[in-house]
Nucleic acid binder design. Structure first.
Lengths: 192, 192
DNA sequence: GTCCGCATGTAAGGCGTTACATGATTAA
DNA sequence: TTAATCATGTAACGCCTTACATGCGGAC
């Protein structure tokens, strides 16, 4: 037993990819090693055991070996339980803890969110993301101000880099929300 | 045997802190849990074993238990071998691999660099950092352009966030280099 | 004398890394 | 046939996480 709703970052990436379309371990490795999503593992020693774990939890299942072309592959597809877990994970609220310690997980959630839980929730996510950071940045700033005398110059600059990163994320999230909202309006228009 | 020159991120953080001034595991935990450097562990199960490993490598040594006030502490100080390892790690060239997979290590290196290997090398580091990213961003952009049709909208936006982060880092590095160079000039003037 | 905070630790488990191993298929 | 590529795996190791344990000191 275990299998709570919690997903490691790698499991999230794999489950998200498989949810988009069924694929094999090799396919996933290629995505990780050839696309910029590949700030991930991509090593067989990470991927295949992870697939086993996810399968053991009943979140994916092997759907037929081998293609017509020849070499045996194992293509996995997501199960309904897997989809439920993914949805739950993607629906988690954005907390300060996520902002500070799990930014990578947040971005991954965002990347899959639209297709799994819909545009509406994605927009809410972006707003929560931006406002959590907005609340956090002043704290960092005030720490920086209070420590600026005791900090070595490079320590201060390193902190400024961190703050600049957070501010960039706020700007990005606002822009992204605008674009996605516009996209939603457009597609409503198209449908009508 | 092992103990090559490679330092895990946590080891680097700990060794760097101890190099600045001798301190105990508890001190380090406080730094990690109370300052924004604390996107690190801070849990005893991480810190104390790490201190043991570092000590076993001969990079730090316990320098007297207990303060005058009472409670027994174990204060560590860096050894000459530890300083050599730290210097070697901080002197590594900046590669694309570091940019993509180990940005946290790079920033940590930067934070300690000034005091350990000097202003000159720190400036060289910042320039190399900026130019490695400058060379990488166009690759990301061209990938984005080529994949923009097949990517879901959120996938594209997530990639844009990554690119924006890299560009922010370039700007930051240039500004930081300017400030540090100015600081160097000023202190030369003061000395004269 | 009890309770809380300081300071250090340990044990079990999970997971990623590196490196090696294995078969099967296609191209030369 | 040999080599290269596809596709999947395994074993050893390192290290972090979580959770629990322990002893001492000061405050009331």
């Amino acid at each position: 037993m275990k299998q709570e709703d919690s997903l490691s970052t790698l499991s999230l990436a794999i489950l998200g990819l498989i949810s988009q379309n069924p694929q094999s371990g090799y396919d996933i490795r290629k995505v990780f090693s050839t696309t910029p999503l590949g700030h991930f593992s991509s090593s067989p020693g990470a991927i295949y055991p992870a697939l086993r774990r996810i399968e053991a939890n009943g979140w994916i299942r092997a759907a037929g070996r081998r293609e017509k072309t020849g070499r045996p592959r194992t293509v996995y597809q997501i199960t309904s339980r897997g989809l439920a877990v993914l949805k739950r994970h993607l629906s988690q609220p954005v907390t300060r803890g996520h902002i500070v310690w799990h930014m990578d997980d947040l971005m991954l959630r965002f990347a899959f969110m639209d297709q799994i839980v819909g545009r509406e929730k994605t927009l809410r996510f972006l707003r929560a993301f931006a406002s959590e950071i907005d609340a956090y940045v002043p704290i960092l700033r005030s720490y920086l101000k209070s420590a600026t005398d005791t900090l070595p110059p490079c320590g201060r600059l390193a902190m400024e880099q961190g703050i600049a990163g957070y501010e960039m994320n706020v700007q990005w999230a606002k822009r992204a929300a605008k674009e996605l909202a516009r996209g939603a309006r457009d597609s409503r228009k198209e449908r009508s």
